[in-house]
Amino acid sequence: MALLTCSNLSLGYEGKEIIGNLSFEVNEGDYLCIVGENGSGKSTLMKTILGLNSPLGGSVTTGGGLKQTEIGYLPQQTDVQRDFPASVWEIVLSGCQNRQGFRPFYGKAEKALAKMNMEKLGLTQLSGRCYREHSGGQQQRVLLARALCATQKMLLLDEPVSGLDPKVTAEMYEIIKELNEKDGITIIMISHDIEAALTYADKILHIGKSVFFGSAEEYKKTAGAFTSAKGGARE
């Protein structure tokens, strides 16, 4: 059963098409990496999957009991967040908003969920501490814990290792791998790091001038055709 189906998607801004006729499926337990050159529309595609942008054409549908608002999203950090006075606990708990509806305050279930996810990512000690005083890697883990509060099934990660040093990057990839293998959470990740994508992901979606969708092995065989994607700078 496909959790997410994109069919004949056409994406762009103000009527200008960046990507046309894009179709792919994400199944339960998949680890999909979306790669491509700068400006190829990776972030636009991600926002469309989340329902933040509407596509110019085609459709995004969710299945298998997944609602669009139940996708856990790990966005890139914004300037506002860098000096935001908030404790780790407040941020992780805010991931439970999609279970809240019109209830104004968090209940026991939400607090338990937030605690569990903080424990899973080793954040329990940091609970009352201020978000902006942590290192980039710790901040990413806080945002990942928040994303886990929002989902049981699917995580969408936008350049989760951008700006992290190599050691922390490796740790982050291990955490994501573990979530995929142990907890069975479906992963969709935008990445510039083709090597890591080929190591960890089992499916690759390459968008840009040429489009590829298939397993990581097949992508390796045809890699020559996509060399231009290597070593792309950060968006």
Binding site: K47, T69, P75
Partner: peptide, 10 residues
């Protein structure tokens, strides 16, 4: 704190 995340979660 994060308008995009908030919108993504409905």
């Amino acid at each position: 704190f994060d308008e995009n995340f908030a919108r993504a979660t409905g």
